[in-house]
Write a protein that binds this DNA or RNA. Structure first.
Length: 492
RNA sequence: CGGGAGGUAGUUCAGCCCGGUAGAAUACCUGGUUUGGGACCAGGGGGUCGCAGGUUCGAAUCCUGUCCUCCCGACCA
């Protein structure tokens, strides 16, 4: 009653906004294009961040922190990268404000405090990091360098959307330096696997691993690998990228090392990142018209317990039982919340926690107490069943795993049902307009054709899947020969 | 950045065309009855009408500027 969600069918974009706002993940702010991540949304991000951070450390990486500001001369050193980002950079030109002589209580930029050299606010940190690595690397013994940083970056986007594209966002960026090309390529692929593992096993979202075409490649990279996920409206979303940078940055920043034969060589580099955009992907992939549906492994609250009682006496008895159950759940490492707030009635709480996507809800009333039972409701399927209070912690531990798996399977079924082959242009356009999803189709391999297809249909090549089967065919647009199908989709 | 829509109570919105005491629902506070899917009754508090100028005796309302949001488009490694 108090919180209505626009249905997906009515307006998918509005549905998404409603979930983010009413699910209390984020708020709009007074700054154009920037959002406030609210405590519930941040708790979700923290769970994602912590899981990823552990995975990075398990693969030998360490965290560090580099400056927010990048001197313009450093930023422009790697030309392609600089050009790629130039249009969306925020730039600091002054370092002081002063009282406005014309208007009391107002401030103006002090024209005498102009910076000698402008500072670019990092849209990504390759420049400042490679300028630093130059000082860290002399010998092959200094390699590899396997550093990650958790940071904010700024990209001055024309059109923003909560989590999916904001002017400032949080992410992690890994930047590694290696003695050989083989090692750098292996690192690039390893981190792609880490991302795929995380998104599939923690976020319950199946992804396709692939390589970007030249058009979609990171500026400054030799190869860009990506994981692509499919949202419920049939649009694709890039969930993470991993770049093999070759020696481009080493050459731009003159980073050389002496190898075992005492020969000077440029180092080989990678970079890889995922951002708070993943939160947007999570929302769009799993949720329904009643609200968010969060996978148990990253849900801030995994189990909420709602008491149903008449009078203090019943509440006391129920609370006593709940405390037993709560401590069992906590002992099993389950994140549980007991909502005994007296101002809200049970029905209201049920709706509220459905909105916020809590995977499992327990309801306990006087009736249940007599029978030593609790009602267990799962968010993803809305199924409810009575379970004996004695084994409820074990039951829930298993149930959380089932929910996690069911959410992945559901998303995977959806993706498979929405991945189609197209062999003719008409077929391609028909699928795009009527069904969306991924389309596997032949392409002649040229940028011009990719641009032309984008121009006509707004679909782009999301990736060339890794281990893509080779198959003779003809480009859907030009009819020229092709050796493999690539994955097209309209994308976020 | 172009086109469209919007900003009035914590929230959703009416009022604006045609200037004259700022409203409703909900939320909130107090008391009571309630509590198994968004309770009910009674009483009460709360708004510089996004911000800044202007017109006017008088502006939420008319004019100008500006900020923020949404949708569509362009753009988006």
């Amino acid at each position: 009653m108090s919180k209505e969600i626009t249905s997906r069918e009515t307006d998918y974009a509005q549905w998404y906004n409603d979930l983010v706002i009413k699910g209390e993940l984020a708020d709009y702010s007074a700054v154009r294009g920037c959002m406030v991540i609210k405590p519930y949304g941040f708790a979700l991000w923290e769970n994602m961040r912590d899981a990823l951070d552990r995975m990075f450390k398990e693969t030998g990486h360490v965290n560090a922190y580099f400056p927010l500001f990048v001197p313009k001369s450093l930023f422009e050193a790697e030309e392609k990268n600089a050009e790629g980002f130039a249009k969306e950079c925020a730039v600091v030109t002054h370092y002081r404000l002063k009282a406005d002589p014309a208007q009391k209580g107002k401030l103006i930029v002090d024209p005498e405090a102009k910076l000698e050299e402008e500072l670019v606010i990092r849209p990504t940190s390759e420049a400042i990091i490679w300028n630093t690595y130059k000082n860290w690397i002399q010998s092959y013994r200094d390699l590899p360098i396997l550093v990650n940083q958790w940071a904010n970056v700024v990209r001055w986007e024309m059109r923003t959307r909560l989590f999916l594209r904001t002017a400032e966002f949080l992410w992690q960026e890994g930047h590694t330096a290696h003695a050989t090309q083989e090692e750098a390529v292996a690192e690039t692929k390893q981190m792609l696997d880490v991302y795929a593992d995380f998104v599939e096993n923690w976020m319950a979202l199946p992804v396709i691993k692939g390589v970007k075409t030249e058009n979609e490649r990171f500026a400054g990279a030799v190869d860009t690998y990506c994981i692509e996920a499919l949202m419920q409206d049939g649009k694709a979303l890039q969930a993470g990228t991993s770049h093999f940078l070759g020696q481009n940055f080493a050459k731009a920043f003159d980073v050389k090392f002496s190898d075992k034969e005492n020969k000077l060589e440029y180092v080989w580099a990678t970079s890889w990142g995922v951002s708070t955009r993943l939160v947007g992907a999570l929302v769009m992939a799993h949720s329904d018209d009643q609200g968010l549906i969060l996978p148990p492994k990253i849900a801030p609250v995994q189990v909420v317990i709602v008491p149903i009682y008449k009078g203090d006496e019943q509440k006391t008895m129920i609370t006593k039982k709940v405390n037993e159950i709560t401590s069992q759940l906590k002992a099993a490492g389950i994140r549980v919340k007991y909502d005994d707030n007296e101002n809200a009635r049970p029905g209201w709480k049920f709706a509220e926690y459905e909105m916020k996507g809590v995977p499992v809800r327990l309801a306990i009333g006087a009736r249940d107490l007599e029978k030593n039972e609790v009602e267990v409701a799962r968010r993803d399927t809305k199924e409810k069943r009575m379970v004996s209070a004695d084994g409820v912690a074990e039951y829930i531990a298993v149930l959380l795993g089932e929910i996690q798996a069911a959410m992945f399977d559901k998303a995977k079924d959806f993706r498979e049902a929405n991945t189609r082959k197209a062999d003719t242009w008409d077929e391609f356009v028909q699928i795009l307009d009527n069904q969306g999803g991924f389309i596997a189709a032949h392409w002649d391999g040229t940028s011009e054709t990719e641009d032309a297809i984008k121009e006509k249909t707004k679909a782009t090549i999301r990736c060339i899947p890794i281990d893509n089967p080779q198959e003779e065919g003809k480009c859907i647009l030009t009819g020229k020969p092709s050796v493999q199908r690539v994955l097209f989709a309209r994308a976020y």
